[in-house]
Design a protein around this nucleic acid. Structure first.
Length: 597
RNA sequence: GGACCUGUAGCAUAAUGGAUAGUGCAUCUGGCUACGGACCAGAAGGUUGGGGGUUCGAGUCCCUCCAGGUUCACCA
């Protein structure tokens, strides 16, 4: 049982003994004592006043006395207003630290009683253009959340649903056919996703010209958009694709393979992966039968024109189309189908969709529909809705060429890390391969941390010109702290100092050391919180605080230079544990830490 | 117009309903004869968008107003 639970139990006992009442455990608030006060844990007594029927100070005093006398771990207490601050024995903290050192993955839940299978979908790109900054946020979030959930003992399945069909795909295909002269990525010297993206842009440009011409000839804008020859051709191409026209399918396969090869490179660079990749070309017909069943059951209704709808007016929403007049499906139809399919494929208990907040409504509807259809898992569908990444001048617009490309951005970050290293002379004497590896770790660490430290649901601004900081609350700051710990340990080993498996429990602790151990103590809780709220930002902020506190300690206290060898060894031991946690936390964010930098 | 989300210092970002709202960048001032200065110490910067309410206690919960965003397609 952890110390907070013990405290809580004793408080309940104390109340029963002294005031003769059994209280709701929820009214017992044990929290970490704020830095500016003396103590380790604080009991807020205000909620207990109606039971004690005494003033806050007196109640706190009485409870404090009882706890001190009945719980060996409590060393002393003090009362400030309605706050009872309890101080725990040093030996408790050192024993705790020894346990941390003995654990393989401290903070993880190794054997959950009843592990769930959690399916997490992220990335979900379209195969008509390369990945951009928005996808980076999506991928980093999905990948990190998957790791975090796994750390809490559940089984995680990472899936990607690639949108590889539809009118937008036809557009780039058509443009390549018309203006590409058969060019391949090899000939163009480009990644396939970028090449295909170029033709998507080309389509748009030519399409706009045609619209303009038609408007000149007197058509309305809406008509012009519908009647432009290019869009008609693209629609025709989509029809051919759906009719399995051989040459269309061949072209589609060829171009998609280029794009997917390009994505693979980007994913690899970014360090994300998947257990299973679904393609919409396989799944887009799913869901129709389920809608039909729903229709039979009277959950949905059919309009006179034959289209099928669900009525969500009672839920405060509108009516939503599920099948078109011609019987074909819309986007949500296939989402109904894929949800069903995946729960079957993996026998999943939960499913998380990492999708931007512009689709909040969509997922609200999806969940309601699954519920109406009677799927018990509807309760366990979660939309991890994240905010947009905006530029200082506003939203990214492909038309204005302000889209920040994922590959370019990663390259730029690594280049910035290189410049930084060179200016600081940090990597003098390392060979080129080592340098490249370290700069990559740092550049990507800066990017990933910058994005993940922000609460997912918030929109964030990203300034590519000023780039990303390498000082302060950043990935490199944390990486640096880690590298320095590694360096310390290496130096110690060179001096023949052994870091022991455990530390004597009556070692004296400074306030700073105690503070660090207390921070270490909260790590499991941080992981839990982060997993529950699907927010890597909680871990990011924690690791930053840990690194920052450690750096202060590092400056204030000699470690290897400490003359008392017991103290020196203790500080090394503490440093090593902190290094482990930094590494563990960063790993959950998908960020590497360098041995040196 | 309906629904949902967000508003914290110049910018960025924290705070299970708890004590004096933390932190970084930028600005200013100090600290390298080093266990690694990508660091540390200090200064300055706030009516937590406005107004009500609930509570012993509100950045946090409720109401209202303001500002911004998203969405409400026989698109995906």
């Amino acid at each position: 049982m952890n110390i907070e639970a013990q405290l809580k139990e004793k408080v309940l006992e104390a109340i029963q003994q002294m005031y003769g009442q059994v209280v709701d455990p929820a009214s017992i608030q044990i929290q970490k004592t704020r830095k500016d006060f003396e103590g380790d844990f604080t009991l807020v007594v205000f909620p207990l006043l109606r039971i004690s029927k005494k003033p806050p100070e007196q109640t706190a005093e009485e409870l404090g006395g009882y706890l001190r006398d009945h719980l060996a771990e409590i060393n002393s207490y003090n009362v400030i207003k309605g706050f009872l601050n309890l101080t725990i024995n040093n030996s408790f903290w050192i024993t705790y630290l020894n346990n941390v050192a003995a654990e393989v993955n401290y903070g993880f839940i190794h054997k959950k009683e009843k592990p769930n299978t959690v399916l997490i979908e992220y990335s979900s790109p379209n195969t008509n253009k390369p990945l951009h900054l928005g996808h980076i946020r999506n991928n980093l979030l999905g990948y990190s959340i998957a790791k975090i959930i796994a750390s809490q003992g559940d089984k995680v399945v990472k899936v990607n649903l690639v949108n590889d069909r539809g009118i937008h795909i036809s557009k780039s295909m058509l443009a390549w056919q018309k203006w590409g002269n058969g060019i391949t990525p090899e000939e163009a010297g480009k990644k396939g996703d970028h090449l295909v993206g170029d033709f998507y842009v080309k389509f748009d440009q030519e399409y706009k010209k045609q619209i303009e011409e038609l408007i000149q000839k007197g058509q309305s804008e809406d008509d012009a958009k519908k009647n432009a020859p290019l869009i008609l051709e693209a629609q025709e191409m989509l029809r051919k694709w759906e009719a399995h026209d051989e040459s269309t399918i061949a072209l589609w396969k060829k171009m998609n393979s280029w794009v997917l090869a390009g994505f693979d490179v980007t994913y690899k660079n970014l360090g994300v992966d998947f257990d299973k990749i679904y393609f919409e070309s396989d799944t887009y017909k799913l869901g129709k039968e389920i809608v039909q069943e729903g229709l039979n059951k009277g959950v949905f209704f059919k309009k006179d024109d034959g289209s099928v709808w669900v009525d969500l007016v009672e839920e405060g929403l509108d009516q939503k189309l599920l099948l078109r007049t011609d019987g074909t499906s819309v986007y949500i139809t296939q989402d109904i189908g894929t949800a069903h399919q995946r729960f079957l494929d993996f026998n999943a208990d939960e499913m998380i969709y990492v999708v931007g907040n512009e689709q909040n409504y969509h997922f609200q509807v999806l969940k309601l529909i699954m519920n109406k259809l009677g799927y018990s898992f509807s309760e366990y569908l979660f939309h991890l809705s994240y905010g947009m990444v905006e530029l200082p001048e506003g939203k990214m617009k492909s038309r204005e060429g302000t889209v920040v490309d994922a590959d370019d951005l990663m390259d730029e970050m690594i280049r910035t890390a290189e410049e930084m290293s060179r200016e600081l002379g940090k990597l003098d004497g390392y060979n080129e391969i080592e340098k490249a590896q370290i700069n990559r770790t740092i550049g990507l660490g800066a990017l990933k941390y910058f994005i993940l430290k922000v609460d997912p649901k918030k929109n964030m601004t990203f300034d590519p010109k000023e780039s990303i900081d390498f000082n302060g609350n950043t990935g490199p700051f944390i990486q640096y702290s880690y590298a320095r710990i590694k360096s310390l340990i290496k130096k110690a080993q060179e001096k023949g100092i052994q870091i022991p498996d455990e530390i004597n429990s009556n070692t004296e602790l400074s306030l700073k050391e105690l503070q660090l151990i207390k921070l270490i103590h909260t790590y499991p809780e941080v992981l839990y919180e982060s997993s529950e709220s699907l927010s890597p930002a909680i871990i990011a902020n924690y690791i930053y605080e840990l690194a920052k506190e450690y750096n202060q300690f590092y400056h204030e206290y000699p470690i290897l230079n400490e003359e008392n060898s017991d103290i020196s060894v203790f500080r090394l031991f503490l440093s090593a544990q902190i290094g482990k946690i930094i590494q563990s936390g960063m790993n959950l964010l998908g960020i590497d830490v360098p041995e040196r930098m």
